[in-house]
């Protein structure tokens, strides 16, 4: 009934015939499915918070340890997202535009962070970046301590976020005709002008989508981070770990308070980015 009401509102109350049929059915199913899979589990989380008093909630999330975990989680996720936005399109560009030996293998390699169990990724990265690891040794030699610091956490988040950016940008680059670049070159554009004025504006929406995906994934990441993080309270303790710790201590109220705050913050951030993106798209009217 509710669905029908929404539909009739959406279609101005008129029963108009459409060329593409099944609007009611597909919207109904979408709503049902989203409720079942996403909304109901998340709303129980919210309902559970109502069983807490405001003081309980506030004292949990305002404790210095929790606040520092928020700062670390959002900070490292944002940094990793930004780094992926710079290097992801470069990887995509090389894969789309050039032919080189073992290209298919390298292409498949990009998906590895998707497929690899995160714990394995975490252990591998830790052994590489530890003080006696292959990379960690040399980084330490130039004064950078990577494992068990926020730097290590960021490295793990870059690792798991990279495929999101590459895989969203790649098809857009593939669809970008070489004609366009040739036209720009023959109109007198330098290589740099072609990149900034012709290619970047076209891939910008995809890059932004890749950023959102990589950022969102990083916020909730657990497995790959906890090994390399070292998990020192106030220093390298991420929010998801804090939630688990609280659960292990049977402090459900605490766990839920942190989880809901994370949820709300991520949702608002992603919403802002999406609004920004649709503004860009409207301005560009890319068909």
């Amino acid at each position: 009934m509710i669905v029908k009401k929404i539909i009739s509102k959406l279609t101005d109350g008129k029963k108009s015939k459409r060329v593409i049929p099944g609007f009611g059915l597909s919207l109904g199913f979408t709503m049902f499915y989203l409720s079942l899979i996403v909304m109901i589990p998340l709303s129980t989380l919210f309902f559970k918070t109502f069983s807490l008093t405001w003081e309980e909630f506030y004292s949990t999330i305002s404790s210095p340890r929790v606040l520092s975990s928020f700062g670390l989680t959002f900070g490292a996720s944002l940094t990793a997202g930004v780094i992926n936005v710079i290097f992801g399109p470069l990887v995509a560009w090389s894969l789309v535009r050039y032919n080189f030996p073992a290209k298919r293998i390298i292409d498949a390699l990009v998906d590895l962070p998707f497929a690899l169990p995160t714990a394995i990724a975490g252990i591998t990265l830790t052994s590489l970046y530890a003080e006696n690891g292959w990379f960690g040794e040399y980084l330490l030699a130039i004064g950078i301590k990577s494992a068990y610091t926020p730097i290590g956490i960021t490295i793990a988040l870059i690792f798991i976020g990279l495929p999101f950016v590459v895989r969203t940008v790649q098809p857009v680059l593939e669809a970008l005709e070489v004609d366009i670049e040739e036209a720009a070159a023959s109109l007198g554009a330098t290589r740099w002008q072609i990149i900034t004025r012709v290619i970047l504006p076209v891939i910008r929406p995809a890059v932004l989508t890749g950023f959102v995906l990589s950022f969102a994934r990083a916020l909730g990441e657990y497995g790959s981070v906890i090994f390399i993080a070292g998990n020192m309270p106030m220093k390298t303790e991420i929010s998801t770990l804090l939630i688990i710790t609280r659960l292990e201590q049977y402090d459900y109220a605490g766990a839920i308070s942190i989880a809901v705050t994370m949820l709300a913050a991520s949702f608002i951030l992603i919403l802002i980015i999406n609004i920004l993106q649709s503004r860009i798209n409207k301005k560009n009217l890319i068909s």
Binding site: E177, D179, E182, A183, A184, S186, V198, V202, I286
Partner: peptide, 20 residues
């Protein structure tokens, strides 16, 4: 010489306009 140093106008079959 590079295309931009030739002062030549080129028109492509599929227009190659900048869509954005």
């Amino acid at each position: 010489a590079s295309p931009r140093d030739r002062n030549v106008g080129f028109v492509f079959q599929h227009y190659a306009l900048f869509k954005h």
